[in-house]
Design a protein around this nucleic acid. Structure first.
Lengths: 134, 134
DNA sequence: ATAGGTTCCGTACCCAAGTACGGAGTCAAG
DNA sequence: CTTGACTCCGTACTTGGGTACGGAACCTAT
């Protein structure tokens, strides 16, 4: 089951070997204990974990935040997990709302582009305005 | 209408003065021409712009990407705008999907937490798996 | 048993996005 | 007309997230 060497893992996850080692130092990824003076092996679980880290980063989480999310995946005491989860959830929903507004606005822009020509001005900033001064 | 000094702008947008100047150097924010050896003034538009930059960053855009989005807001030739917009849109939709899956999973976790006790393990990683090895 | 390619580990370096610093100029209040 | 707060501008430092480097150890294939 533990089929990959570190470079195999890196390749499977689409990152650099050094990145794996960096994540290990940061505690985002465990270093499997190596068979007495030998070489560590990794499995699919680690690949998924690295992919998760990368995906979470793309949507704006820092590595510290990713660590918290991973804690939830790893299993924590319920009360604590719930606290973290609720906190993150609020956060996630706020981002979701912003992203959705950008999505809508960009979609409209593309549509307008298809029918008109010349300059277009896309009210992107307005899309994320908390309370437009009107 | 141009009511703020740079520190007023910074405060209104909830960032550091140096950040404003940094954005100006990066071309994300124009430097209004100053009244002959005097002090520049800013308005609500700039506040909104900085807030947008910050919001976009929170959902994972780099400053270079933000610059592209701002270009759309500022008005560009249609063909070019459309190309950028479509590109960003695909990007935005991918992030949206990931965020939504995290949202769902976190919500489920919180629910389970409310009814059970002891350890919980939240399949967060699985939520973002491209194709789970089964 | 040794050469070539990894792994391991530490240290050093890199880029993005700020943050801090310091001197000179400006401006309003006393 | 000076004092204190702020602006302007350049340069330097910091932090987060990696990347690169280099020597020693390891593991095949010949």
């Amino acid at each position: 089951m533990q089929t990959f060497t570190i470079s195999g893992l890196a390749q499977a996850a689409g990152v650099n070997v050094e990145t794996i080692r960096f994540y290990q130092r940061r505690g985002l990824l465990a270093e499997p204990d190596k068979p007495l003076g030998g070489i560590r092996r990794y499995g699919e679980a680690e690949v998924a974990r690295v992919l998760f880290i990368k995906a979470a980063q793309r949507i704006g989480f820092t590595l510290d935040e990713v660590a918290q999310l991973l804690q939830l995946d790893d299993g924590t005491q319920c009360a604590e997990a719930r606290a973290i989860a609720e906190h993150k959830l609020a956060d996630v929903r706020a981002r979701l709302a912003d992203l959705q507004r950008i999505e809508t606005t960009l979609t409209q822009l593309v549509e307008r582009c298809a029918t008109k020509r010349g300059k277009v001005c896309c009210p992107l900033i307005a899309a994320l305005q908390p309370a437009p001064a009107r």
